[in-house]
Design a protein around this nucleic acid. Structure first.
Length: 222
DNA sequence: TAGGCCATCTGGTCCT
DNA sequence: AGGACCAGATGGCCTA
């Protein structure tokens, strides 16, 4: 990677050198305007000013020198802007990669420890979030069913009790909105096998997460 | 060796 | 005007 960066940077430096060379050539050998990328000249040297074919009289020389200095200044400003923009873009991509890396640390790791690619990370995160929301949604449904069963067994058909706010109401509203996406194509509701050491909720949670895990297909587009 | 992934550069566009 | 964002291009590295 270092070699790649070095190559890129060396390329950039050489191209920027071409800009400066082109400035001097343009101001000296001819007055034609040419595109910066079309000329590759030799490095500018202070001695070339007095020895080039353009050195006919001092007046012209002064004017040409002034113009060259202006164009050189413009190119320097442009180059500086480009370098700064490249630096910002590099930092921006680094911060993006950092965020992606943070996301990887939150996601369950693959058994073979193979690092998820960027697109795989995003897709797996999508699946994972969906599975978590499904876990909450279904757990909330079960909780409500248990509560109504308990109420029925006590022969208390009071709607006030059923409609009373519960600690899980927030999770319910959130999961109900999340359930709008419960038709996620990468998830199947059939229950996979699960370790027997968990309690019901934990067991189910494990199932959902495992299913999210197993249904994640690297490279799959959805 | 082809293909995938990645980092970087670059020019354009939009926003503040 | 300058910065953020984006997409295309390019070249290096790795793996099947």
């Amino acid at each position: 990677m270092c070699t790649a960066m070095e190559t890129v940077y060396s390329d950039m430096d050489s191209s920027s050198c071409d800009y400066f060379t082109q400035d001097d050539e343009d101001s000296c050998s001819s007055m034609h305007a040419s595109s910066p990328s079309s000329s590759i000249g030799k490095p500018a040297s202070p001695a070339s000013d007095s020895q080039g074919p353009c050195a006919t009289d001092m007046g012209q020389k002064k004017r040409r020198r002034g113009r060259a200095r202006n164009e050189a200044t413009v190119h320097v400003v442009k180059k500086n802007r480009r370098v700064k923009a490249n630096d910002r873009e590099r930092n921006r991509m680094h911060s993006l990669n950092d965020a992606l890396e943070t996301l990887r640390t939150v996601l369950p790791a693959f058994p073979d420890d193979s690092k998820l690619t960027k697109i795989e990370t995003l897709r797996f995160a999508h699946n994972y979030i969906w599975a978590l929301s499904e876990t909450i949604r279904i757990a909330d449904i079960e909780q409500r069913q248990n509560k109504s069963r308990a109420d029925a067994s006590l022969l208390l058909p009071s709607p006030c009790v059923i409609d009373a706010p519960s600690p899980g109401s927030d999770a319910c509203s959130w999961s109900s909105s999340a359930s709008s996406s419960s038709s996620s194509p990468s998830y199947c509701t059939s229950s996979p096998s699960s370790p027997a050491t968990h309690d019901d909720y934990g067991c189910f949670q494990t199932d959902v997460l495992q299913y999210s895990y197993h249904n994640f297909v690297p490279g799959m587009s959805y």
